[in-house]
Computed example of a mutant assay.
Amino acid sequence: MLIIRPIRSSDFAALYHIAEESGHGFTSLPVNEELLRNKIARSEASFVKTIDKPFDEGYLMVLEDTDTQEVVGTCGLEAAVGMVDAFYHYRLGTEVYHSEQIDVRNEVETLTLCHDYTGSAELCTLFLGDKYRKNNNGRMLSRSRFLFLAQHSERFGETVIAEMRGESDAEGNSPFYTWLQQHFLGIDFVQADYLSGLGQKAFMAEMMPKNTVYVCMLPEAAQKVIGEVHTNTRPALNLLQAEGFRCRGYVDIFDGGPTVECNINDIRSVRESRLLTVKVGDMPASDSSFILSNTLLADYRATSAKLLVSDETDEVILSPELAAALMVATGDPIRVLAM
C-alpha cells in the first residue's frame, strides 16, 4: 500500500536520494545535508505547532510503500511564503506609448521585480520515483495536498500558488537566465538556483535589475520562453489548470517559468472533497477510485482506494487494513475525493 504521511527525521537518507535524483530546477530540494535536515526539522515542528494565523510553516510529506517501507516520493506545502525570506517574482505588464502628433501607438511588455505573493500558500516539492510513475500515483500524490488544504485551511494563506519550472536544457541552462547572467548576476543558472534553494537570496536584492525591464530589449531566445513551462512540467501544469489555477502574469526571476494561483476555496478538489464517517468492515466492490485522508495533523495519513461512496449516506466502509493504515476507526471522520 502507498501511504502519504508527514516526513520524519529517519527519512533523511531517502530525502537526500530524492534531492539527487530530482536534478536541475528542483530548487526546493538542493543537495545539501544541512539544509535537508533543517527542512525535516522545520516540517516536524510545523505539524505540531499551534497557530493563530499562517506565518512561515512548511509541511513536507513523503509517499511510503508500506510493503517495502521505502520512501518513493514527496510533496509539500508552504503556509505563507516571503514572511522570513524575500519571495521574488517578475510581474508582466504593459506600457503604452502614444503620440497624436506623429500618429504612432506602441504597447511594450515589461517585467517588474516584485514581492506580490508574500503571505500566499504554496504547492511545492512534488517528486515521484520513476518506477512508481504509474496507476495515477503521481496524481494521487499531488492532489492529496488539496485534502490537507481543505481540512486545515486556517493554517494557509488565502491565495495558493505554484511555481512552474521554466525552459532549460539537459545541462540546466536557461535561455532567460543567460541574459541575466551576462548583464547582471555573473554566476551560472545552476549555482543561482542552488543558492536560492539554500535561502541565500541576498545576491538577488544586490544584483537583480531594479528598474523595469523592457521585454523587447531582451534576446529573442529569452523572450520566447517567458511564461513557458519545461516539457517535464507540462502534466503538472495541466493538472493544476483543471483545478482552477491560472497564471496572472507572474514569472520566475531565473527561468521565466509561469506561477499559477487560485484562491484556496476555489480549488476544485478543495470544494469537491467530502467529509464522511468511517465504518470498519468488509468493503463492498467498487470501480470508483478515491483519494482519502484522515482529518489529523501530526498523524496525517492519505492514500487511494476503490470505495463505494453514495450521495444517499455520509458513511463509508473501510477494510480493517485500510482503516489501520489511515489511523482511523469506526465513527471517525475521513475526507474523500474522487480521482
Results as ranks from 00 to 15, higher is better:
residue 2 L to M: 11
residue 2 L to F: 14
residue 3 I to E: 11
residue 4 I to C: 10
residue 4 I to Y: 14
residue 5 R to A: 00
residue 9 S to N: 07
residue 9 S to M: 13
residue 12 F to D: 06
residue 12 F to M: 08
residue 13 A to H: 03
residue 20 E to Y: 02
residue 23 G to W: 13
residue 24 H to W: 15
residue 25 G to K: 10
residue 25 G to N: 09
residue 26 F to E: 04
residue 36 L to V: 06
residue 39 K to R: 11
residue 42 R to T: 03
residue 46 S to H: 10
residue 46 S to W: 11
residue 48 V to H: 02
residue 56 D to V: 03
residue 57 E to T: 01
residue 57 E to A: 00
residue 59 Y to Q: 00
residue 60 L to D: 01
residue 61 M to K: 03
residue 64 E to Q: 14
residue 66 T to L: 13
residue 68 T to F: 15
residue 80 A to H: 05
residue 84 V to L: 15
residue 85 D to A: 11
residue 85 D to M: 05
residue 90 Y to L: 14
residue 103 D to G: 05
residue 105 R to N: 11
residue 107 E to Q: 15
residue 107 E to F: 10
residue 108 V to N: 09
residue 109 E to M: 07
residue 111 L to N: 15
residue 117 Y to E: 06
residue 118 T to R: 06
residue 120 S to M: 04
residue 121 A to P: 02
residue 129 G to E: 15
residue 139 R to S: 08
residue 139 R to V: 00
residue 139 R to F: 05
residue 141 L to P: 01
residue 142 S to T: 02
residue 145 R to T: 01
residue 146 F to D: 06
residue 146 F to K: 05
residue 149 L to K: 11
residue 152 H to K: 09
residue 152 H to V: 01
residue 153 S to N: 10
residue 157 G to L: 04
residue 162 A to H: 11
residue 163 E to P: 12
residue 167 E to P: 04
residue 172 G to V: 03
residue 172 G to C: 14
residue 174 S to D: 14
residue 175 P to D: 14
residue 177 Y to K: 03
residue 178 T to E: 15
residue 178 T to V: 09
residue 182 Q to W: 07
residue 182 Q to I: 00
residue 185 L to T: 07
residue 187 I to R: 10
residue 189 F to A: 08
residue 189 F to R: 12
residue 190 V to D: 14
residue 194 Y to Q: 11
residue 194 Y to D: 05
residue 195 L to M: 15
residue 197 G to F: 08
residue 198 L to E: 08
residue 204 M to E: 15
residue 205 A to W: 07
residue 206 E to R: 14
residue 208 M to I: 02
residue 211 N to G: 04
residue 213 V to D: 08
residue 217 M to V: 04
residue 221 A to G: 10
residue 226 I to N: 09
residue 228 E to C: 09
residue 229 V to E: 11
residue 230 H to S: 10
residue 235 P to D: 08
residue 238 N to E: 15
residue 241 Q to M: 04
residue 242 A to I: 01
residue 247 C to P: 02
residue 247 C to V: 04
residue 253 I to H: 03
residue 253 I to F: 00
residue 262 C to M: 05
residue 262 C to V: 02
residue 263 N to H: 10
residue 264 I to T: 01
residue 264 I to K: 08
residue 271 R to I: 05
residue 274 R to S: 09
residue 276 L to H: 10
residue 284 P to T: 12
residue 287 D to K: 10
residue 287 D to G: 09
residue 292 L to R: 03
residue 293 S to C: 14
residue 296 L to S: 10
residue 298 A to T: 00
residue 300 Y to T: 00
residue 303 T to Y: 11
residue 309 V to G: 09
residue 312 E to K: 13
residue 321 E to D: 13
residue 331 G to P: 04
residue 334 I to L: 15
residue 335 R to E: 06
